[in-house]
Design a protein around this nucleic acid. Structure first.
Length: 354
DNA sequence: TAGCCGTGGGT
DNA sequence: TACCCAAGGCT
């Protein structure tokens, strides 16, 4: 008779698991929390440098709560899903005000904080306090869908519910922190999406997908969707002070970050800029483009260049704007494609533009 | 509940 | 190239 699922997994984890991740040393509740938020839909290798810089600047919950949102977004720039940063910052202030500065250990209270759902709450409690709570992230979904041969796309409520039940039935009473880490390590290192290493898997003996020869087809892929292209117009307004950036709306794409002024139509954009500065001179046809693929659509951003002969002063009422100067980095959030574009603008070139 | 929210790597 | 999707949550 085989030993239990958890026993085999933990024995494997002790020898082959990841024990040197930055948030494991020291493994405080705050650091586990920050890491779990950053790791949502984001790979470990991508997160590590962001996590290190973030906890260096915001070493504890008070430091985060005290910081301005623009600086928090600055340290999140390039990581994506910026609502995570806004929610993390909001939650830190809630914890200071309503929980005496301590992250709640009650699952319901933890899950009530913005940005923390069922899986993240369980992960924090398991990792930080060794509480036996089931998690269900992408790794666990893949491991369980294969081990129990669960059909259907895990995004479907019925399939997700079945996977949650399986996950809860397997959590051991002791070593919960190691167990949850082991599940994620198994999914990331052995039970990978493509070409899983079943020969090195500690639970391959009773893996139904493997016994049925269906490892490659589980879990079922998400149904395909159309990918439209969205065209927008943006202004590259130059003055001796730098390039004009506007704070974007707090929600929606790139919410709360600073970017080039935008409009749906070219005419709207020209009106907006020239109404603000009569001396603004348009430099001609669209000089550049920013093409960017999001999850649900492609963005085709067409850039119109304007030039201001003098440093303008005063800011239009109700607008939050800055003059971006590549030499002095501003502590605000910038979308990754915009940051790349601005870097290219700061680099002197011969004008052929790529 | 299904669409939205970023970016980068793998195939 | 064009897709999939990764330590999910919110509305």
């Amino acid at each position: 008779m085989n030993s239990s699922f958890a026993s085999r997994l933990l024995a494997w984890f002790d020898r082959h698991g990841r024990h040197e991740l930055p948030w494991q040393h020291p493994r405080t509740a705050y650091r586990v929390w920050v890491s779990e938020i950053m790791l949502q839909q984001t790979r470990v290798e991508t997160v590590i440098p962001y996590f290190t810089a973030f906890v260096d600047r915001f070493p504890d919950l008070s430091a985060l709560a005290d910081a301005p949102i623009d600086e928090v977004l600055h340290f999140w720039s390039g990581l994506g899903y910026y609502a995570r940063a806004r929610n993390l910052h909001r939650a830190a202030r809630i914890v200071i005000e309503c929980h005496r500065g301590q992250l709640p250990q009650d699952p319901a209270a933890l899950e009530a904080l913005p940005g923390i759902g069922r899986s993240t709450a369980a992960a924090i409690l398991a990792q930080a306090y060794d509480r036996p709570m089931a998690i269900l992230d992408g790794n666990v979904r893949r491991v369980l869908a294969r081990h129990r041969a669960v059909d259907g796309w895990p995004g479907q409520a019925r399939v997700a519910s079945a996977l949650w039940s399986i996950a809860e039935s397997l959590v051991p009473e002791s070593r919960a922190a190691d167990y949850t880490q082991a599940m994620m390590d198994l999914g990331a290192l052995v039970c990978t999406r493509s070409r899983p290493a079943c020969s090195r898997c500690p639970v391959a003996g009773d893996c139904r997908a493997r016994l049925q020869g269906r490892v490659a087809e589980l879990p079922a892929p998400r149904p395909g969707r159309a990918m439209p292209t969205r065209t927008r117009w943006a202004a590259l307004v130059r003055s001796p002070a730098g390039i004009l950036l506007e704070r974007r709306a707090p929600s929606g794409i790139w919410g709360g970050l600073y970017s080039l002024p935008e409009a749906d139509e070219r005419e709207q954009l020209v009106d907006r800029i020239t109404a603000r500065w009569a001396e603004a001179r348009e430099q001609g046809a669209a000089s550049a483009r920013i093409a960017h693929a999001f999850s649900h659509y492609r963005l085709d951003l067409r850039i119109l260049e304007f030039r201001l002969p003098t440093v303008p002063w005063g800011i239009m009422e109700g607008q939050s704007t800055i003059w971006y100067n590549p030499a002095s980095s501003n502590a605000v959030g910038l979308p990754a494609p915009i940051a790349r574009f601005l870097r290219d603008q700061g680099t002197p070139h011969d004008g052929t533009n790529g």
